[in-house]
C-alpha cells in the first residue's frame, strides 16, 4: 500500500506566534507540474490588523535597543539561515528553481543579511551630521526609525526579495508587517521559523500569506503604519495603494531593483526608512579656537 503524503500546513507569523489565519481560509499554490505545494493561510484584513498591533507593540523596545545589539541579532538570523540552507534550497526547487539557482539565491540571502547586520551600528554615523548655523547653536541631525513599515514582498521570488526589503527596515530599528509573495510563499513562512529561533523579539517581524490584492489596501490605508514599501507591483494596484497611503502621509516607496543581483543592496534602503531629526542646542560656540567643546 502506498503512503499518503502529508502536505505541510504553513501558518502565519504574528507577534512571535504562529497562528492560523483568523478567517480559517487557506489556498494551495501549485508547482510547474501542477502538483500542490502546500496548504497556505489565506489571511484576512483582521490578520493584517493583528499584525500591525503586534508590530506597534514591539516597536518601542526594538528601536531603543542598542544598535550593536540589533546587529548581533541580525547576524544571528544569518547564522540560523545558514544552518537551514538545505530546507530553503529544497523549497526553492519545489517552487521551480534549478538547483544551481536555488543555491545561489540562498547564499545571496545569507550574505545580504550579514551585510545589513554590519550596517546596524554604522549607518547613523554616516547619515548624521553636525550642521554649521549662523547662530549660537550646536545644530545636529540624527536618524530615527519611522515606526511600523508595511512591506509588500516582490512577487517573483520566494526568499531574496523578502530578505532584501525586510532587512534594511529592521536594521534601522523599524518593525515590519510583511505580505509574502502570493504565488511563492513557502520560503516566507520557513523564514519566519528562522526569525523565531534567532533572538528576534516577537512582533518585530510579522509575516502574512495570502492574496496581495486583498490584504495590501488594508495595510496601505492603516493609520498606524508609517511607511509602505513595494517592489515591481502592477500599475493599477500600485496606484490604489498610493491613494490609500495618503491619509496619514505614509512614506511610500516602490523599488525597481533586481534583488537577485549582488549589488542590489545599500545604505539608501536603510535611509529611506529613517526620519531625520535636527536639534538646535544653545551653546556659546563650537569648533572655533576658543571653543571648550
Amino acid at each position: 500500500m502506498s503512503r499518503l503524503e502529508i502536505l505541510k500546513t504553513y501558518k502565519i507569523y504574528i507577534g512571535g506566534q504562529f497562528p492560523r489565519t483568523e478567517s480559517g481560509r487557506y489556498y494551495t499554490p501549485f508547482d510547474k507540474k501542477g502538483k500542490p505545494l502546500a496548504n497556505i493561510c489565506l489571511s484576512s484584513r483582521k490578520d493584517v490588523r493583528n499584525a500591525v498591533v503586534a508590530a506597534r507593540k514591539a516597536f518601542g523596545s526594538w528601536s531603543e535597543r542598542s544598535a550593536f545589539n540589533r546587529g548581533q541579532i541580525l547576524y544571528r538570523i544569518a547564522e540560523m539561515l545558514e544552518g537551514r540552507r538545505a530546507q530553503f534550497i529544497d523549497e526553492l526547487i519545489q517552487q521551480g528553481l534549478t538547483k544551481a539557482n536555488a543555491e545561489k539565491e540562498v547564499n545571496l540571502s545569507i550574505d545580504r543579511i550579514v551585510y545589513y547586520a554590519g550596517w546596524c551600528d554604522k549607518f547613523n554615523q554616516v547619515l548624521s551630521s553636525v550642521n554649521p548655523v549662523s547662530s549660537a547653536h550646536f545644530n545636529f541631525s540624527t536618524c530615527e526609525p519611522m515606526g511600523v513599515v508595511g512591506i509588500i514582498s516582490e512577487q517573483t521570488s520566494s526568499l531574496i526579495g523578502l530578505v532584501s526589503m525586510l532587512m534594511p527596515a529592521i536594521c534601522g530599528g523599524n518593525t515590519a508587517v510583511v505580505l509574502a509573495s502570493e504565488k511563492l510563499p513557502l520560503c516566507a513562512v520557513t523564514f519566519a521559523e528562522v526569525l523565531n529561533s534567532s533572538d528576534v523579539p516577537g512582533g518585530v517581524v510579522n509575516i502574512l500569506t495570502g492574496s496581495t490584492s486583498e490584504m495590501a489596501p488594508t495595510l496601505a490605508s492603516h493609520m498606524d503604519v508609517n511607511a509602505l514599501i513595494t517592489s515591481q507591483l502592477d500599475d493599477s494596484l500600485k496606484k490604489n495603494l498610493s491613494v490609500a497611503a495618503v491619509d496619514n502621509l505614509k512614506r511610500n516607496y516602490e523599488f525597481t531593483a533586481d534583488w537577485s543581483k549582488p549589488e542590489s543592496q545599500g545604505l539608501n534602503y536603510i535611509s529611506d526608512l529613517q526620519e531625520i531629526k535636527t536639534t538646535w542646542h544653545p551653546i556659546e560656540n563650537i569648533g572655533g579656537a576658543t571653543s571648550s567643546y
Binding site: V48, S221, M223, D224, D247, N248
Partner: peptide, 8 residues
C-alpha cells in the same frame, strides 16, 4: 473603514 492609530 480604515484602521486607526493612537497617534491621532
Amino acid at each position: 473603514g480604515v484602521y486607526q492609530s493612537s497617534d491621532y
